[in-house]
Design a protein around this nucleic acid. Structure first.
Length: 838
RNA sequence: GCCGAAGUGGCGGAAUGGCAGACGCAGGGGACUUAAAAUCCCCCGGCUCCGGCUGUACGGGUUCGAGUCCCGUCUUCGGCACCA
């Protein structure tokens, strides 16, 4: 046996990282004749805390895909960048009196160094940074294109106001009534806001989902969020006014059962008929109370309906001609439909609750064997129309059709599709974001900056603090705010809000195609070659935020001829979070929280009532954060990468296990030691041939389907076989190193070089498998009697159903069958023989 | 409430309708060692009269054969949530 040096990951990892960097081993080339493959991970927000063990999970996964594709001959674009605008940096700047740009630079350098430590095959020459004026010039440019086409507009409207961040939030950023970032309550506030008209793309965003390969839960979430709903709009005459009140309904079939109407508290008709309304003050009081409620409170008291009847205004049911009352209630939202509803308490849960509470009449119009005075009946699949004139006897579906046609003929209604999706609140009252390139001119109104004046740079400020009034810190920089109108040349003021954090990430995948272009956001040929992204992996938490926003921006850019594709991402997958075991904690002198240790120095696990370990998110305050730097120092980057992939199914959340990670280091050492048993044979030995080819197949397929844990398990099995055998041919070892390379790139390169296998692995081709070589001569099959295992027997792999008949004479079979009568004889080649007896 | 995903050893998890628990962690035993670590070998769901029996959340069903398919129930996690 050959003497081999010790495995020293610290040394060899640095060595190969330098080789890759010096040779630009992973640069995407602009050779448009080659087949391309574009892998994308969500670029990180470079926080001060640096990388945590959650980041490398998706990064390693797509690094494996990228490395494999390169070996398969693709021109691979595998870029990295920095989504660097955002609140944490700004808050840190405020606290420590440093410019956010300085902090950003420092954080980026730290992140880059950590990513390089892990050996990711990013093309670092294509880095983008959303806070770089050369980058945000184009973010501003896209905004201007939207502005020119009426897709960016400013309007006074009720918005979500985060009481913690002191700025407005998009609907997508409000989670269960609180701010998704800081957890502070969100309240409603009337404010003039920049909006992007994402609703104009609602249908397109929905349709696009049919043509892309996204995991189902992403598609489902986006569909639910867009919330398409088919129904009708119906006009109710307002008694004694000649005016009418329009509502949206999905149940026009129940129109005969509409016994009252409800307006949202903010409905404009309350102002319009102020003079006629006798209890105006009471209505105003209710409106004010509703506005004061945070979203959280609104949902908390969900089912308990409140409301006030409008005294002095009534409507006419267009079907029955009956006069019905009009109420206001906060269960009707101004932001959906027309802000008014017809209430059919018999067949709508919310209306039923409301009617019961306020003693309003409930009229059954769909018969379904239930007493609607006692219980609401909202089933549309069964049931027949009653008390509904010409609709009587119809099914719900038939009645919907007939009713809408009737309304159309009589001019009081029409078909209508509504979406839950709201326009995107696109402004933040903060400093560290892209300035909005708009000027407010007293004469010309809102005027776009000339494109040649982009980028509009962020001015230097001394104080980044947000203001209580809801104005951006930029508003205090008067020499920046005061400017000339680009249109008339007169005195004007700049817009002082900045864009939300989601702006820069809405198009970065386009910039990667041609990141240094000064003339356009990217060259046409580059976009045509690289787009769409072939495989995009990212967090589920971005499904109705970044992922939806960026699809919208790209569809817009496609419409104006900038992006060559309508859907930017061909395939979207999602990773599970890396969690942690909960430990008993203690606080040291510096206030750092760390796990409490028992007498053996092991951290003390927290258990639940059933004695199972508690699993939770990693957080500083729980003292359970695992730092990648420490892990790499302990077991090396290759073992770290491997454990990230081996720990469990890629899309499942998994707690980090230190001993589990150490197991991967042990496996790498096993591969390392295997070289001591190397023979001179360049080919595959006969008894290993089947296993090697089966491994190539399994690993190749599993890498493409994100089943990294089983790919690695398969390689472990192969290594176990080779260790047991005591010798390994050069051909076998080479194949193993090639297959393992995407997961553990450093050690495999080192072993490849040490054993004289030729040019580095990153220049080698991916191994091919041969189905025929996978067939073993003999296989063990199971013998079952009535489906129960009764023995195992070796048979030639090629054994056919006919030949299997001879197994009747096999002693085990004879013994198991005994004197019973054979009813059926089932043979599954290579698997089993099942004999049914009586 | 609605939508979605999932329930398999002590743990993470494997199993195109075909030998449940691959692979790894933890644990136990042995070899090597003055010793320890590392390494190598063996064992490792439960019960067992050592023949077997039983077992993939629970109850039914389809099938020669079900962790896998169908019906029902329970539980957990995730998303949406007064969207008319």
């Amino acid at each position: 046996m050959r003497e081999i040096p010790m495995y020293d990951p610290a040394k060899i990892e640095k060595k190969w990282q330098k080789v890759w960097a010096d040779n630009k081993a992973f640069a995407a080339t602009n050779d448009y004749s080659k087949p391309k493959y574009y892998t994308l991970i969500e670029f990180p927000y470079p926080s001060g805390a640096g990388l945590h063990v959650g980041h490398p999970r998706p990064y390693t996964a797509l690094d494996i895909v990228a490395r494999k594709r390169r070996m398969q001959g693709y021109n691979v674009l595998h870029p990295i960048g920095w989504d660097a605008f955002g609140l944490p940096t700004e808050n840190y700047a405020i606290k420590n009196h440093v410019h956010p740009a300085e902090i950003t630079k420092k954080n980026i350098d730290h992140f880059r160094q950590q990513l390089q430590m892990l050996g990711f095959s990013f093309d670092y020459d294509r880095e983008v940074d959303t806070t770089d004026p050369k980058y945000y010039k184009w973010t501003q440019w896209i905004f201007l294109q939207m502005f020119k086409r009426g897709l960016a507009y400013k309007r006074e409207m009720p918005v979500n106001w985060c009481t913690g961040c002191k700025c407005v939030l998009a609907n997508e950023e409000v989670v269960e009534g609180v701010c998704e970032r800081c957890g502070s309550p969100v309240v409603h506030k009337q404010q003039s806001q920049w909006m992007l008209k994402i609703t104009a793309y609602a249908q397109k965003l929905l349709d696009g989902l049919d043509e892309v390969d996204f995991i189902d839960r992403v598609k489902t979430s986006q569909r639910n969020w867009i919330g398409r709903s088919e129904g009708a709009e119906v006009d109710f005459a307002l008694e004694g006014t000649g005016d009418k009140l329009r509502v949206f309904t999905t149940r026009i079939d129940t129109l005969f059962g509409a016994t009252y109407m409800v307006l949202s508290p903010e409905h404009p008709y309350i102002e319009k008929y102020k003079d006629q309304i006798k209890n105006y003050d009471a209505l105003m009081e209710y409106r004010a109370a509703a506005a004061r409620k945070s979203d959280f409170e609104r949902t908390e008291i969900n089912k308990d309906k409140t409301g006030v009847e409008i005294d002095g205004l009534r409507a006419i049911n267009p079907m029955t001609g009956t006069s019905i009352p009009i109420w206001i209630s906060d269960y009707v939202l101004m932001t959906y439909g027309t802000g008014a509803i017809m209430a059919v308490p018999a067949h709508d849960e919310r209306d039923w609750d409301f009617a019961k509470k306020f003693g309003l009449p409930i009229i059954e119009v769909v018969a379904g064997g239930r007493n609607v005075q006692e219980e609401c009946y909202s089933d549309v699949a069964t049931g027949t129309l009653v008390n509904s004139g010409f609709l009587n006897g119809m099914s719900v579906a038939e009645a919907k059709k007939a009713a809408v046609e009737y309304a159309q003929e009589h001019g009081f209604g029409e078909r209508k599709i509504n979406y839950k999706l709201r326009d995107w609140v696109f402004a933040r009252q903060r400093y560290w974001g892209e300035p909005i390139p708009i000027v407010h001119c007293p004469k010309c109104g809102m005027v776009a900056l000339d494109e040649k004046d982009l980028p509009l740079l962020l001015p230097e400020v001394k104080n980044y603090e947000p203001t209580e009034t809801g104005e951006s810190p930029l508003s205090k920089i008067t020499d920046w705010v005061n400017c000339k109108c680009p249109q008339c040349g007169g005195d004007a003021k700049r817009e002082t809000d900045t864009m939300p954090q989601w702006a820069g990430s809405s198009w970065y995948f386009l910039r990667y195609c041609d990141p240094k272009n000064d003339m356009a956001l990217a060259a046409k040929e580059a976009l045509e070659y690289w787009m769409p992204v072939d495989w995009y992996n990212g967090g589920m938490e971005h499904t109705t935020l970044h992922l939806l926003y960026s699809r919208f921006w790209n569809q817009f850019l496609n419409d104006i001829g900038v992006s060559p594709v309508s859907e930017p991402y061909k395939k979207r997958t999602s990773h599970g979070m890396v969690l942690a075991y909960a430990y008993e904690t203690e606080r040291d002198a510096n206030g750092q929280v760390s796990p409490k240790k028992d007498e053996n120095g092991n951290p003390i696990l927290l258990l639940d009532d059933n004695g199972k370990p508690i699993i939770e998110k990693m957080s500083k305050s729980r003292g359970n954060v695992v730092n990648p730097d420490d892990v790499v120092a302990e077991i090396g980057a290759d073992a770290f990468r491997m454990y990230e992939m081996f720990m469990g199914a890629f899309d499942q959340a998994i707690p980090w296990s230190t001993t589990g990670a150490a197991g991967c280091r042990k496996f790498i050492e096993r591969v390392w030691r295997l070289q001591a048993n190397l023979t001179e044979d360049e080919g595959l030995s006969n008894d290993m041939k089947a296993s090697v080819h089966a491994t190539i197949k399994k690993v190749s397929e599993d890498y493409d389907t994100l089943k990294f844990n089983t790919a690695i398990a398969q390689m472990m099995t192969l290594v176990n076989e080779l260790v047991k055998k005591g010798s390994v041919t050069r051909g076998e070892y080479k194949t193993l190193l090639l297959l393992l390379n995407p997961v553990a790139p450093h050690v495999t390169e080192e072993l490849w070089e040490m054993n004289g296998f030729g040019a580095p692995i990153y220049t080698q081709s991916w191994p091919e498998y041969d189905e025929a070589a996978m067939v073993k001569d003999e296989v063990e099959i199971a013998i079952q009697i009535n489906g129960k295992i009764r023995g195992r027997v070796m048979v030639p792999a090629s054994l056919t159903r006919e030949q299997a008949d001879t197994l009747r004479e096999h002693p085990d079979v004879v013994k198991a069958v005994g004197d019973k009568q054979i009813v059926k004889f089932i043979f599954v080649p290579g698997r089993l023989l099942n004999i049914v007896v009586k």
